[in-house]
């Protein structure tokens, strides 16, 4: 839930993480030929990190508070 400041901050951290994942310079590392899991590295990275980020978002927000 976004109901507490801590959760809002965790989400904001994921925002920064996403900005890092989805931009230069990280992209340039994967922007090359060849294949990763049978996919172009850039495609594999973007789709993989995107899904990972979504999973983290779900984890942060749906996790019941201790």
């Amino acid at each position: 839930m976004i109901r507490t400041r801590l959760v809002a901050q965790r989400l904001a951290f994921l925002f920064l993480l996403g900005c890092f994942f989805f931009n230069y310079p990280l992209l340039s590392i994967f922007n090359q030929g060849g294949s990763l899991f049978g996919m172009p590295p850039l495609y594999a990275w973007l789709m993989g990190s995107w899904l990972f980020l979504i999973a983290l978002l779900a984890l942060v927000i749906e996790r019941k508070h201790g």
Binding site: I2, A8, L11, G18, L42, L46, W50, L53
Partner: peptide
């Protein structure tokens, strides 16, 4: 190629900021 994707990455990032903006 992959150039179509940023249009969907942006909203993902927006919702990560939901607590600060949308909320």
């Amino acid at each position: 190629g992959i150039g179509f994707l940023p249009i969907y990455l942006g909203p993902t990032l927006l919702f990560a900021l939901a607590g600060f903006i949308l909320y």
